[in-house]
Amino acid sequence: MILKINNQSLEVDVDPATPLLWVIREQAGLTGTKFGCGIGQCGSCTVQLDGVAIRSCLTPIQAVADKEITTIEGIASETELHTIQRIWIQEQVPQCGYCQSGQIISAHALLTKTTLPTDEEIDQAMSGNICRCGTYSRIKKGIKLAAEELAGASTINLENNG
């Protein structure tokens, strides 16, 4: 079976029921995507399938054969970080950092779809990603700043990130 991960083809020979998460981590060797709960509750394993954020711990590889899979390793260009990643550093968002690949991938999917998301839209898109260190305020601020920069606009209220 051939998977397309971050624009590269990978031939894998495992049980087609194997969750995508473990193939990404163990066969593709891309360990930025994390295991957190195994039941789609925490979002640590979030990747994109054709640009849509999904939980790879629940997705068997047989369901993704013809789709474009994007992981945290696949959103930067060869020479520079993606805007979201750069702003994550600028705002010093991560603490332990374990959930942040999933957070960034979810944020990336949101901003691809919604140019200048409202607080409610951010909550909705990001509430599937748990952060045990409580970096939520900085995540929200980071998304707003990234949205502004990507849209070349400055219309967002940066004050209340609760």
Binding site: K34, Q85, V93
Partner: peptide, 23 residues
């Protein structure tokens, strides 16, 4: 002062090496 933390860049691009990532 608050200089940027050393550990953060690796935590935004998937390269941070947690115990579970050892290969």
């Amino acid at each position: 002062t608050s200089p940027p933390r050393f550990d953060i860049p690796s935590k935004v691009d998937g390269t941070a090496n947690f115990g579970i990532d050892v290969t």
